[in-house]
Each structure stands twice: as C-alpha cells, then as structure tokens.
Nucleic acid binder design. Structure first.
Length: 273
DNA sequence: CGGTGGACCTGCTGGC
DNA sequence: TGCCAGCAGGTCCACC
C-alpha cells in the first residue's frame, strides 16, 4: 500500500506526537506478519522514550532510548495510527505500544505483509533488510544518471528498474506508473534502449511526482492514512494509475492496463513511447 | 547472472 | 441476493 510519500507523510505526522513519549506497555496479538513478531525484543521496548522518527525507502525507523530502533514496514495494507489507549482493539491490530499520556500507537495490517522488528540503532541501516536498499530519491543526491548507471548490463523493462528497491528506494507501483507517464516512457521499454537525456528526464519526474504526492498527503486508495487517521489526496492527481479506459489528461486517448512483471501497469499508448 | 512468476494473506468489487 | 473470480499500494525465493 504505502510507498515512499505515504511513509514520509506518516513520519511527519507522528514525529511531533511521539518524540519524548515513553512506552509503558507493549501488546502483541499475532504470531507473525511477513516475519515472526519477536516478543522479547519488542517487549523490551517498554520503559523507553521515543527520540525521533526517520525513514529509509518505505521503512519507518523509530529511534528509542537505549540504542534501540523499532523498524516498521507497512507492506500492502499496514496502517500505523496513534489513538486513545481506551479505544477498543480493532480487527487486525497486531501490535500496540501503550504510551504515557493515555494513547497507544497501533499497527493494523489485514494482509500481514508488513514487518515490525527491533535492532540496535547503530547498525540498523547496515543490516538486512535495509542494507541492500538503493539511493534515496529525495535525498538531493539522486538523478537520472543513477538510473542510467543501474541500467548498464540489464535489459529489463524500465518500470522494473524503478520498482527495484536495490536501485532506488521507495518507488512503488503507483509512482512508477505516474513517473513513466510524465517522462513519456512506455513501462515496457527495455532499459538498454533509453538515451541519457531520457534518463535525466525520468529522474526529474520521479522526484517531482514523489514531492507532489507528499505535499498532497500521499495517495489513499483504500487503507492508507497518516498517523492521525487522515487520508491522502493525491489520488485525484493520478494521471494513469488505476484509470484504464479513461481518457489521457494530455492527449485524450484511452489509458491502457497491462500486466508487467506480475503487476498491474497503466500507461497512455499515445503519450508514452 | 538477470528476469519472470508464484507465494505469502485478507478483503473488496464486479459480473453472472 | 449470493457466490466466485480477479484484483489490490510489497517483497522474497525458486526456477529458467
């Protein structure tokens, strides 16, 4: 569900409400998400205060006192919200951190593709599964040149390159489709048939679409909300994603849906070559 | 080695 | 109305 913009909006919404707060109790209600929920390390978070929230790709990193970091990945359907502690537990609420001040941070995830685990703060970025992540597209260091470099020796469709977290971290299906539309590139164009200027343009559209989505509060299709339960508004700005049969906002031709590498893929056959 | 397809889960929607 | 197929924002792993 959530891609980089949604995780970043979540981070911004939770950071001021979490930092300095103390975890009083940890409740675990399910054995495993995508990986088992380790009871002991999660339970050992009790008594610690939140220091700050960071993000790496689609991972949310909550640094706590005592050199512990809680890492959360929302998978497809995960939702992390801060609610009153007395609010009844909802279905699929798998993990809850009860905080001082009478609130709880809860993780709901119907499909259980998410992750939640604890690591020593010092090594969290260097250890799996974060270690292999590629460049941060919004860090200021990213450009289309990074994509061109990663494409060397490969022949996969350009959309697969954008979705490869080892190349760029945080782009998912929605923003891959939207960036390719804005760059005028067909999703199935092989990466060995893209010119340097085209790569640069794609790099720029990736940054622009991610930044605009963050400014709009992310994209809500079904599940996504920020930490306060607010939905994202970027859905109305989507040009192609989920719009098969609708007219292209630029040329009016019907948006087409195909399946590429197992994922639904939307593009305009007129504008994207 | 790179690339694809299936597996992992639940829930919603649309067609019959 | 009810049922079932298909599809969903992600990632990993087996296989060619």
């Amino acid at each position: 569900m959530p891609e980089l913009p949604e995780v970043e909006v979540l981070r911004r919404s939770l950071e001021p409400r979490l930092s300095g707060r103390r975890i009083e109790r940890v409740a675990i209600h399910v054995r495993a998400l995508r990986a088992p929920l380790a009871r002991r390390p999660l339970g050992a978070l009790a008594g610690r205060r939140f220091l700050h929230l960071d993000r790496r790709g689609k991972y949310l990193l909550a640094a706590l006192e005592g050199e512990r970091t809680l890492v959360v990945h929302l998978g497809m359907s995960g939702r992390l919200t801060l609610v009153p502690a007395a609010l009844p537990r909802e279905p699929h609420e798998h993990l809850a951190l009860f905080l001082d001040g009478g609130e709880r941070l809860r993780l709901r995830d119907p499909r259980r593709f998410g992750l939640a685990f604890v690591r020593p703060t010092a090594g969290v970025l260097a250890a799996p599964p974060l270690a292999h992540l590629g460049i941060e597209p919004l860090g200021g260091a990213f450009s289309g040149d990074d994509l061109a470099r990663a494409a060397r020796g490969r022949r996969c469709p350009v959309k697969s390159l954008l979705l490869d977290a080892g190349v760029v971290a945080g782009i998912g299906n929605i923003y891959a489709c939207e960036a390719l539309f804005r760059a005028g590139l067909r999703p199935d164009r092989p990466v060995d048939r893209i010119s340097r200027p085209r790569w640069r343009r794609l790099g720029e559209t990736v940054i622009a679409v991610l930044e605009e989505a963050i400014a709009a509060g992310g994209t809500t299709i079904q599940d996504y909300t920020d930490g306060a339960g607010r939905e994202g508004l970027f859905r109305v700005a989507l040009a192609v994603y989920g719009r098969d049969g609708e007219p292209c906002p630029r040329c009016g031709r019907a948006i087409r849906r195909v399946v590429l590498a197992g994922r639904g893929t939307w593009y305009c056959p007129g504008c994207q070559r």
